[in-house]
Design a protein around this nucleic acid. Sequence first.
DNA 1: TATTGTTATACTCTATAACTATA
DNA 2: TATAGTTATAGAGTATAACAATA
Lengths: 167, 167
Amino acid sequence: MISDCYDPAMSERVGGKPPSGVAFLLTQVGTHAARRFAERVAELDITPPVAGLLRSIATGPGRSQQAVADELGLLPSRLVAFVDDLERRGLVERRRNADDRRQYALWLTADGQALLGRIGRTGREHELDLTRSLDDGERAQLGALLARIAEDQGLTPHVHPGFSSLK
Amino acid sequence: MISDCYDPAMSERVGGKPPSGVAFLLTQVGTHAARRFAERVAELDITPPVAGLLRSIATGPGRSQQAVADELGLLPSRLVAFVDDLERRGLVERRRNADDRRQYALWLTADGQALLGRIGRTGREHELDLTRSLDDGERAQLGALLARIAEDQGLTPHVHPGFSSLK
DNA sequence: TATTGTTATACTCTATAACTATA
DNA sequence: TATAGTTATAGAGTATAACAATA
């Protein structure tokens, strides 16, 4: 999923009217951004979904797996595999909830927090490289326009749509 | 591939410096754009890759499957399945090349051209809806900034990175 | 021997449903 | 009975290698 390979601009050229093609540019550049970020965090032996999961746990520590899965819009069965792997690597800890022993509370270990720091630095490098052809004013302008579209289209702040499925 | 679920902005907030988050916004909005376009063309019983393939054949008719696969950066083995389906539906035609009988030349049928027209209208609707919160000047501004990034990052015009693998 | 198109296969991602243990 | 977490499984999408026909 997740690929928009058709270019409205081209067919508009055939159809008559002049092309604008902002939508296609958005999918093209957006896909490139996602791919480059994935390449960068691969050097930390994680994938983008795992990076998002670590951040989510850090932002709201001690929540149940369902609560986290719900926030990120991913299936509980997917989250299990992620947490299994992170727990094996000593980055995340599962603790039984004493009040409701069906639930596990998720916490970051010290190693997990250190990794999150490295992910943050990777994200800043990614940001700088991707927008290196813009000056500060243009970067802010682009951010403002994208934020407007994101809000208008009903996208949840800080949650990537790649997580979705929601159900 | 293709999902960038980690938000640099958030961890920067933890790390210290103020967040900008243009890179994350790009993947978020770009993924949304690709998904919405996929939903739209699904009503024409095609997927975005197939829409891109139809456009490619229309732009350069009579080329071999390898030439088309090469342009779009997709594997020959993937293209076979797409062309099989499109030929069954009477949208594309395979013709043996008389000079080199190993090759098939790809052509759009009249039905295929009609479908391409409907795809073009769908693309224009998509473009308008996605950028409905911007005025004409802002839309042009956004397009210019995205085009600058696309060129700087070495993206091929009119070819979606989702096709890639290149090899 | 090399190339075009094709088939077979495998590996990942994603989605659904069934199972367990607790409530 | 309902819920949290887990397991098993099936379907896309994607990549690799082997094959037949032709050069």
